[in-house]
Simulated scan of single mutants.
Amino acid sequence: MKRLVIPAFCAAALAVASCNTAQPKEEAKQDSVTAGSENMATAEAPANVLSDAEKAEGWSLLFNGTSLDGWRVYKGKQSNTWGAQNGLLHCTGSTTDKSDMRGDLITNNQYENFELEADWKIAPQGNSGILYLVTEEFEAPYMSGPEYQLIDDENFPEKLEDWQKSGANYAMNPPAKLAAKPVGEWNHTRIVLNKGKLEHWLNGEKVVDTEMWTDEWQKNKTTGKWKDYKGYGVAKKGHICLQDHGSEVWFKNMKIRELK
Results as ranks from 00 to 15, higher is better:
Met1Trp: 00
Arg3Glu: 13
Pro7Cys: 10
Ala13Gly: 15
Ser18Lys: 08
Glu27Thr: 03
Ala28Gln: 03
Ala28His: 00
Lys29Cys: 00
Gln30Glu: 14
Asp31Cys: 00
Thr34Phe: 08
Ala43Lys: 13
Ala45Lys: 12
Val49Ala: 14
Glu54His: 02
Glu54Trp: 02
Glu54Leu: 02
Glu57Arg: 07
Leu61Ala: 08
Leu68Arg: 08
Arg72Thr: 14
Lys75Cys: 10
Lys75Ile: 04
Gly76Phe: 06
Asn86Tyr: 00
Gly87Lys: 01
Leu88Lys: 02
Ser94Thr: 05
Ser99Leu: 01
Arg102Gly: 13
Ile106Ala: 15
Tyr111His: 01
Glu112Leu: 10
Glu115His: 00
Leu116Thr: 01
Leu116Arg: 01
Lys121Gly: 11
Lys121Asn: 15
Ile122Tyr: 12
Gly126Glu: 06
Leu131Arg: 10
Leu131Met: 12
Val134Tyr: 07
Val134Leu: 04
Glu137Trp: 05
Glu147Ala: 04
Gln149Arg: 05
Asp153Asn: 14
Glu154Ile: 01
Glu154Met: 00
Lys165Gln: 15
Gly167Asn: 00
Tyr170Lys: 05
Asn173Gln: 12
Asn173His: 07
Asn173Ile: 05
Lys177Tyr: 09
Ala180Val: 13
Val183Pro: 06
Glu185Val: 01
Trp186Ala: 00
His188Lys: 09
Thr189Ile: 10
Asn194Trp: 04
Gly196Thr: 14
Gly196Val: 13
Gly196His: 15
Asn203Phe: 02
Asn203Cys: 06
Glu205Met: 03
Asp209Lys: 03
Glu211Asp: 10
Trp213His: 15
Glu216Val: 14
Asn220Tyr: 10
Lys221Met: 11
Thr222Phe: 14
Lys225Thr: 08
Lys227Asp: 08
Lys227Gly: 08
Lys236Leu: 13
Lys237Gly: 07
Gly238Gln: 12
Cys241Lys: 09
Cys241Ile: 10
Cys241Pro: 08
Asp244Gln: 05
Val249Thr: 02
Arg257Ser: 06
